[in-house]
Design a protein around this nucleic acid. Sequence first.
DNA 1: TATGAATGAGACTTCATTCAT
DNA 2: AATGAATGAAGTCTCATTCAT
Lengths: 211, 211, 211, 211
Amino acid sequence: MVAFAKEHPQVVHEEDSSKRRQILDGARKVFMDLGFDGASMGEIARAAQVSKGTLYVYFADKCALFEAILEQEALQHGQVVFNFDPTRDAKTTLKEFGLAYLHLVCRPGGGSAIRTVMAIAERMPDVGRRYYGRVLDKSINRLSSYLKARVAAGDLDIDDCDLAASQFMELCKASLFLPFVFQAAPAPSEQRMTEVVDSATRMFLAAYKTT
Amino acid sequence: MVAFAKEHPQVVHEEDSSKRRQILDGARKVFMDLGFDGASMGEIARAAQVSKGTLYVYFADKCALFEAILEQEALQHGQVVFNFDPTRDAKTTLKEFGLAYLHLVCRPGGGSAIRTVMAIAERMPDVGRRYYGRVLDKSINRLSSYLKARVAAGDLDIDDCDLAASQFMELCKASLFLPFVFQAAPAPSEQRMTEVVDSATRMFLAAYKTT
Amino acid sequence: MVAFAKEHPQVVHEEDSSKRRQILDGARKVFMDLGFDGASMGEIARAAQVSKGTLYVYFADKCALFEAILEQEALQHGQVVFNFDPTRDAKTTLKEFGLAYLHLVCRPGGGSAIRTVMAIAERMPDVGRRYYGRVLDKSINRLSSYLKARVAAGDLDIDDCDLAASQFMELCKASLFLPFVFQAAPAPSEQRMTEVVDSATRMFLAAYKTT
Amino acid sequence: MVAFAKEHPQVVHEEDSSKRRQILDGARKVFMDLGFDGASMGEIARAAQVSKGTLYVYFADKCALFEAILEQEALQHGQVVFNFDPTRDAKTTLKEFGLAYLHLVCRPGGGSAIRTVMAIAERMPDVGRRYYGRVLDKSINRLSSYLKARVAAGDLDIDDCDLAASQFMELCKASLFLPFVFQAAPAPSEQRMTEVVDSATRMFLAAYKTT
DNA sequence: TATGAATGAGACTTCATTCAT
DNA sequence: AATGAATGAAGTCTCATTCAT
């Protein structure tokens, strides 16, 4: 009625409604800590500080809420910028990339998306497949592209760059990822991660560097 | 009912009672296919062809049954003999080991113990920890011991053999394990596994072989 | 917020406010299609193109809204004019009345008030009772009055005119109403209704016509 | 183990298990009193004196339980024997039939299956259709067959026996069924039912009796 | 020992209703 | 007056576990 009414248009239901984010935040924590099955909508409501009913105002069901979190996760991962500047030293580039990747997969603070998704990949194959494609495979492809460029430039001698990219990423996880994901060790220290990535880079270049 | 019953004092409940094994077999299949939460005691009873009540005669609860399966899995893994004959070529030994390891973690037929355990590592850290220690870490240690012997023999030049062992095992999984565990690809073919293990071995030796 | 608001003191809440009618129209459709329990206030709000909150501005609760619809229905039925002109042939009058009645109870298009009210007569006896009295019993009484007049005029020979009125109305539903209300057949065709009403009239007059 | 064990084989889950009957009895009462939607599984469990879980041991879901009751109802109706002895007077036969039918549809004690099924015919058309076919239509057919025999015997002169059967049954309900189903009147007295059936029979024969 | 009927706690979800704007 | 976000009670259904036989 009056011009200055509705100063806070509160367009709820929008992708970035504050309530929606509040729910997403609470839900992520619970899902990551307890797993998909272990997390109850009641617990999520409590964590998000909303009523159980409100959950269903924003998300059709538990599954949709879970997928929304993965969606968000995928977006975040997509925004991680790797510096693939071709003028830089390959060793430096790889080390940086490896460290960034390790941070993604060994995120400290317990709950790990990668583990949670693995957990339900059996019963919800689509979810697993989609997550792999949008997050993990994407990283491999980005590194692979970089490697191809270096091969073209004559710096590296690689036959199968997709495999090589995957090899490098696996190397970076050596001795760190498995203990972490099985809760047999806490998230690795910064120093240890650096050491492992250094070793991985050394090994990778020993195999693929042109002489 | 009657005092002289139990004429055949079969000490059931023994570790290797036939009924017990029967239950374990049915339960493994169900747990591995559906995950810990997805598997219901009813389904397990059906798969094992016993009554639900019988399950509780042999195992205190669902959790104990699950752990018994992991226990068994650990024993089986422990019995896999790797040919670490020091007189053989290191390359051959590594390839053989890599392939055997790959078969363990990418077991075809869907259900994977490694995935199932990861799934509940969140809510049952002890289970995850124990499984890691008894199965995965153990393999690493066995390979590590072998590597140490080759270092001592002067064939290899490795600083941190534990890390190196882990690196080799991770390399073997490159491009295969993640798609498999996320259901983004079926279990890899024998040929592809051989190729990847060959590449892993080449890389490993390029980095650690003494000149 | 401001004291001089309400410049247009539209006395809403009146029986015939346009918003009120809009709600009633939407609600009728939903109630008749889905039944009292099957209709949700959300669905009604959508059908009426108003917000859920507005529903409660005009009606205290779901039950009141439902009763308002029945009230309206009763009014409409009351407005149906039957041509009870005493100078017309009784046969013609009965046929016309029977056909009109049949249209009321076998209204095509699924949703039937009569069925919907029957449905909740169990839990809300008052609603059922009131509907019966205001709609069905009223029709019987009107026909009964007509019959009494014909009896007085010597055209018909009826002992219990109330019963006879009811008999005629039941006869008109023969083979049509039950299949319709149980969804075992679609709304009957105009032709079939005419046939059945003709047969009913014949039978009625065979029994009650003075010789 | 011993020969005389298992004296009470308690074949539960069978069609006529005592627990099953217990549930059915409790559920019928609740369903008929409250309607399908109004009846909650908790209430049914209480009425049947079993736990909520037990309900689901015997019936897949609420709907299956409801249909089991209708099934039972249909069987009971099917077992009502009408005396269609051709040597008896038609008038007597019709009166008896009419009274029996009236008892079926105006069963005293509140809950009426016919009303309850009507109630959900909208949302579960299959249920309505099936009930109509198995219970109501069947009665019509039985009467229709009888009428055809009398027509063949020359006692009655009827064109459309299906319609005539339906007409007679509707006549029997005149002034009784509608008030009953709408809770506008209690179940009719025996005497009133006899009067109405007598009147119906008189009317029916006036129209269809051969001269 | 083995059974399977029975249980009851708790999960997901819906929906009538309220309230601040 | 009108909105629609938020609520919480209640409903259906599942499942690990117990217990009498």
